[in-house]
Design a binder for these strands. Structure first.
Length: 840
DNA sequence: AGCACGCCGACT
DNA sequence: GTCGGCGTGCTC
């Protein structure tokens, strides 16, 4: 054991154990830490248990045991594990394996993976607390106490404990460390670490009717007689009896009634208290689940012939392949197929994980699955609170949830016998985590996880990622194509509207071309609905001076500030910097400041001017921040209370609106001309996806795409629905210029607050990487697309690796050593090298 | 990543 | 003279 300030107390021979545990700690250091396992704990620990250990001088951390062994480390003293938190492991050995794979593959630290994997409710951290030393007597103390120390002691008379921060505040200084240290030496106070478990079970306050009244009708009648004067108490009892049939089913009385039901009905809480005091009602608490049991709908989901064929084909291919790509066009009913597969796997006793992109998770598909799988299904979502996440985690551990629908991070749940992982909308970029580390691609990681479980992976998409389609074509994956639609739904009619032509002819009004306006009007006249897609939220991207062209940019980053109308502010989306809109241009003094570009907020306004009679709604990150906002807007639109819905990505995911006949893409160029090798692939995917929202039943829909470059081939291919041909043209390019999937990409960003140092470090690294003796291409270093973020300068290096064999693994290993070496050189000590494997 | 230690400038 | 700035080294 060590005391607070790090002085080692010699080992006690009698407790010196021979068991050690390697603990994974949430720190970015590339190794585990070996702790001694006290004899008393030897029986209660194992891989996957959470433990509390002291790390460094005083901090205590929660870690997860990754390994238990008998080998005492020779070059350092071990500390003992302070506490074991769980009777049963919260993480299983398979997960530990998975974490290590992820750390290695994505070039990050095991602690970073653990941090991403555990819901924060399972992580604990400590806080230093100060309390009075009971042995301390100011009268007899031999040490003088100064004014500031006295302030702390006085405060501790009133409060049993204070944090370091509290002490700092009391004294009006930032760090109270030295003063507290002095008080500790003077034996006036004690300092200890308090660890708090963050997860709190949900407790419900319930009431039930007490014995004589609940069992004997006579007693109850007598009671009412007695209470006839106090109407309020009578009302409460009547309400209770109405909710709980006490004599009919005594077991319901045992379960009681939620106290809230009474108070919510507007009945007096004080009268309720009186009834409890009189021992007529009894109050008690129970721990309840945050997830309600939902009724299921047992009706068989019938598959159309072509779906049945698809299903059999998937199962057949799983015979030979671990992974199958289900390429099913919009409306082909992939969900029904998933449901059948999930049911089968669950019936065989294995677990199932269904991944969905973030935005799709709030939609109908979840409700539909819930109807089928009821309380067998867990939902793991970012809009869930920490406590809810912990409950899903525990639900998987306990076996309550054998099926989970979740976002990217759901791959970390403690499954022990997965039978299948389904990744819907497999091509979605949101499966890739950018920041912070681990920068993993959940689809790829899921395939690895699946392999560890010896289970199957099904990738579903209407427009597969080129990586997956390539793997299917090269026989690495199985492939099933569904190219029929449910019912008689027809492909929509496309109109490619040339923005520049309309502008010349003065037909472009408030960003809408003539054809777009006409089609909207026609739909409004027929009382049909319209979706307007623009992948940019806010009012307008930025402001500009009409006179001199001045554009406001961020002081700390290399980006323009984004204009937000509602707050009359300009904000930086990278560092959060914000500024009021200036009255005049700071460069030339002109008052002609205008907004440039189109955001959803501005479109909403334009539409209300163009179609004053229409009811218009907006769905984007800004309008759906709260937990149920999405559902509200969604319900309004689907019930027909809105005619036009303007939105970002969100409106394209998993929504089925029968009455939508017109879909407008305001600015296709924004998708098309993004400087990235994937822009073509993305444009095809996004336009197809948006178009798929139009006219899904019997009416043929209209899709209007506004662009300045109507001749781009992508439009032709989207209209034909010719995915394979567009794929082939794009792939020819990728092969020629060495892009994935023909090579493996790694991006390394050097970050430093001085541009010169960041650049020099990145150039150094580039040269050293070039010396690694394997087939590769190294590009850069070059200033990053956004060259400065939060006052840190960024330089990028792109590595293209031959995918053959284990060359990528060798390269990553060598690179790791090189970066480590560079970081030990004084010049580059403070340069951060951020490695992104398979970047987006 | 934190966090403590050490050495330097600008204040009572 | 002290406070607190941040550069540096370490964590089983």
């Amino acid at each position: 054991m060590e005391d607070l300030f790090g002085d080692s107390i010699p080992h006690d021979e009698t407790t010196d154990p021979s068991t050690f545990a390697d603990v994974i700690l949430p720190v970015p250091i590339p190794r585990m830490f070996t702790y001694r396992v006290p004899r008393s704990m030897e029986k209660s620990i194992g891989i996957g248990h959470r433990v509390i250990v002291q790390f460094g001088r005083k901090k205590v951390l929660t870690g997860v045991i990754g390994k238990v062994h008998q080998k005492p480390p020779k070059d350092y003293q071990t500390k003992a594990i302070l506490e074991v938190l769980d009777d049963q492991p919260v993480v299983n050995p398979l997960q530990i394996k998975f974490w290590f794979w992820m750390a290695e593959y994505y070039c990050c630290q095991i602690g970073e993976v653990m941090n991403a994997a555990l819901p924060s409710g399972l992580k604990l951290s400590s806080e230093s607390k100060v309390q009075l030393n009971p042995k301390f007597d100011p009268e007899t103390s031999e040490f003088p106490i100064d004014d500031r120390e006295q302030i702390i002691l006085d405060a501790l008379e009133k409060n049993a404990e204070l944090t370091y921060e509290d002490c700092g505040k009391l004294l009006g200084i930032k760090s109270s460390y030295l003063i507290i240290k002095s008080l500790v030496i003077k034996e006036a106070v004690l300092v200890y670490e308090q660890v708090k478990e963050k997860y709190v079970p949900k407790v419900e306050n319930r009431i039930k009717l007490k014995a004589p009244y609940a069992t004997s009708k006579k007693a109850l009648e007598a009671l009412f007689e007695k209470l006839s004067k106090s109407t309020k108490q009578e009302e409460i009892l009547l309400k209770y009896l109405q909710e709980v049939p006490v004599f009919h089913s005594p077991e319901k009385n045992e379960k009681g009634l939620e106290k809230k039901v009474i108070t919510d009905a507007g009945l007096s809480p004080s009268s309720l208290k009186t009834l409890i005091k009189k021992e007529i009602l009894e109050e008690f608490k129970v721990i309840v689940s945050r997830f309600d049991d939902l009724p299921t709908d047992d009706r068989e989901i019938h598959l159309a012939d072509f779906q049945q064929e698809g299903l059999s084909s998937i199962k057949e291919q799983f015979g030979q392949k671990q992974t199958v790509l289900l390429h099913g066009i919009t409306g082909s009913g992939k969900t029904e197929i998933y449901i059948h597969l999930i049911r089968e796997v669950l019936d065989s006793g294995s677990q199932v994980l269904l991944l969905l992109p973030e935005i799709a998770l709030t939609t109908q598909i979840v409700g539909r699955l819930q109807k089928v799988f009821g309380s067998e299904m867990g939902i793991y979502h970012s809009k869930h609170s920490d406590n809810e996440r912990v409950e899903v985690w525990q639900g998987v551990l306990s076996g309550r949830f054998s099926f989970v629908v979740g976002v990217r991070s759901a791959i970390f749940l403690p499954f022990d016998s997965l039978g299948m992982i389904i990744i819907d909308e497999e091509h979605e970029p949101s499966y890739k985590q950018f920041d912070p580390a681990p920068r993993f691609q959940a689809r790829d990681a899921a395939i690895m996880l699946s392999w560890l479980h010896q289970s199957k992976t099904l990738l579903g998409s209407a427009t597969p990622s080129y990586e997956s389609f390539y793997n299917a074509r090269t026989q690495k994956y199985g492939y099933v194509h569904l190219n029929k639609r449910f019912g008689e739904a027809q492909l929509p009619e496309f109109h490619i509207a040339d923005i520049l032509v309309d502008k010349k002819k003065n037909l472009l009004k408030l960003d809408f071309t003539r054809i777009m306006r006409e089609k909207i009007q026609e739909a409004l006249d027929r009382q049909e609905q319209i979706l307007i897609f623009q992948n940019r939220r806010g009012y307008a991207p930025y402001m500009s001076c009409e006179e001199c062209g001045w554009i406001p940019d961020c002081e700390h980053c290399d980006v323009n500030l984004t204009y937000h109308q509602y707050s009359e502010e300009m904000r930086c989306h990278y560092c959060g910097f914000k500024e009021k809109v200036p009255r005049a241009c700071p460069a030339c003094g002109s008052h002609k400041l205008t907004t440039v570009g189109i955001g959803t907020e501005r479109l909403e306004e334009s539409l209300s001017l163009l179609f004053p009679e229409a009811r218009i709604g907006r769905m984007d990150l800004d309008t759906t921040r709260s937990k149920y906002a999405y559902q509200r807007i969604f319900d309004e639109f689907s019930s027909g209370n809105l005619d036009i819905l303007v939105g970002t990505q969100m409106i394209t995911k998993g929504l089925d609106f029968d009455r939508v006949t017109v879909v407008g893409i305001v600015d296709a160029d924004r998708i098309l001309y993004f400087p990235d090798f994937r822009s073509g692939e993305r444009a095809f995917q996004q336009i197809t996806q948006v178009a798929g929202r139009a006219g899904r039943r019997n009416r043929r829909g209209n899709v209007i795409v506004q662009t300045r470059r109507p001749d781009n081939v992508v439009f032709e291919k989207v209209i034909q629905g010719n995915y394979p041909e567009f794929y082939l043209t794009e792939m020819a390019e990728r092969k020629r210029f060495f892009y994935p999937p023909f090579v493996k990409n790694i991006k390394i960003t050097a970050r430093h607050k001085e541009s010169k140092i960041a650049e020099k470090a990145s150039r150094h690294l580039t040269n050293l990487l070039k010396e690694i003796a394997i087939k590769k291409i190294i590009l850069g270093p070059e200033r990053a697309l956004i060259g400065k973020i939060k006052n840190q300068y960024l330089f990028d290096i792109y590595v293209k690796l031959d995918k053959a064999g284990n060359t990528p693994a060798i390269f990553k290993h060598e690179m790791g050593k090189i970066i480590f070496d560079l970081n030990t050189q004084k010049e580059f000590k403070s340069v951060r090298f951020v490695v992104d494997v398979d970047p987006y």
